[in-house]
Design a protein around this nucleic acid. Structure first.
Lengths: 186, 186
DNA sequence: GTCTATAGCTTGATAGAC
DNA sequence: GTCTATCAAGCTATAGAC
């Protein structure tokens, strides 16, 4: 009998896990097959362009998750501080309290231009979303932009220090200081 | 006639360049051969353990550079603010104003335990060096440690945002705020 | 949409001449 | 300390059956 289709959601989740840990070049088909339980030809059936297609599908999928989990609070009504706190909670969940690594980091080592552009667009959305909070808190557009970029950097850097030092605290501190970072005057 | 020995310094510098851009798995022998001008067997002659040996030699070599270029100002006499400024200048040079990527980031994706331990030790030295500045500025040991970790995270994150967004400013801002980050009260 | 089977290329690694 | 030559293993990719 014909094997049932493995749900897209599961495929995406498992591919994501591999790319997060190994990056683009580090993720071999052997890894991707083992993670999904699908054989190579099946992966090519779903992603005709091979790994490049997979990576971009994963970036889109994870980008959607990130939007609903983290970015959407920025759009809603309410005081900027509260919205920033909500985003921090979303980030804690999204990054598994620092256990997960960030695709925008791991996928931007020696991968193709399409992927790099995709990653840049994703980070741009993230920064813009943070900047909106800062503007709503009364900061100037230019300062808001800087604060937003620096907040993203604090989180990405927190993830790296957490990864290298084997402690989640640096990442968690970056979340704790997020609201102040985005909304405090000066 | 027998080909002359290619100076260690040049070999290290060129290998470093490759590992910085491609990470451990991304750096193939083809890449390493092209960068050094040495053939595969010659690389194995210098590094009997292959890539793992190369990476660890590169980490040691770059670690020494980092020590003299960045960490040594922390040991000297003088006001903490001045020393922090000196370190910021050293970091600007070391990271090519944001053009260079950090080995502690790129080499910690799916590489062997020895390399991960080496990277952790290097970052530990870095954090400790920053923390000393903070203590000399009068901060408590615990706060100094947190400030130091967060400062390293700000720099690593600045490098990532700079890399993804194609702008050196996030990294350069992380340097500009370094002295205050390490020495301000509270 | 899954699988088996196969192809050719690239990889990491070694032996041995100069 | 460099090189040429060679190797098995792993890699990406495709053809075709069910």
């Amino acid at each position: 009998m014909r094997p049932a289709k493995l749900p897209d959601q599961q495929v995406f989740a498992r591919l994501t896990e591999v790319f997060r840990r190994k990056g683009y070049q580090g993720a071999s088909y052997a890894d991707l097959m083992a993670a999904t339980g699908l054989v190579k030809a099946s992966l090519y059936h779903r992603f005709p362009g091979g790994k490049e297609d997979m990576v971009n599908a994963v970036l889109s999928h994870v980008g959607n998750e990130f939007s609903t989990c983290v970015l959407s609070p920025a759009q809603e009504a309410g005081p900027p501080e509260k919205r920033a706190q909500q985003m921090a909670r979303g980030l804690a969940k999204f990054y598994g309290s620092g256990r997960n690594w960030c695709l925008l980091d791991t996928l931007t080592l020696a991968s193709d231009r399409r992927t790099l552009k995709h990653a840049k667009r994703s980070m741009e959305l993230w920064v813009e979303s943070f900047a909106r909070i800062a503007r709503d808190a009364g900061l100037s557009p230019a300062l808001s932009r800087r604060r937003a970029e620096d907040a993203v950097a604090a989180i990405e850097g927190g993830l790296i220090v957490s990864r290298v030092m084997h402690s989640r605290r640096p990442f968690l501190r970056a979340l704790l200081t997020l609201p102040d970072r985005l909304t405090s005057a000066g």
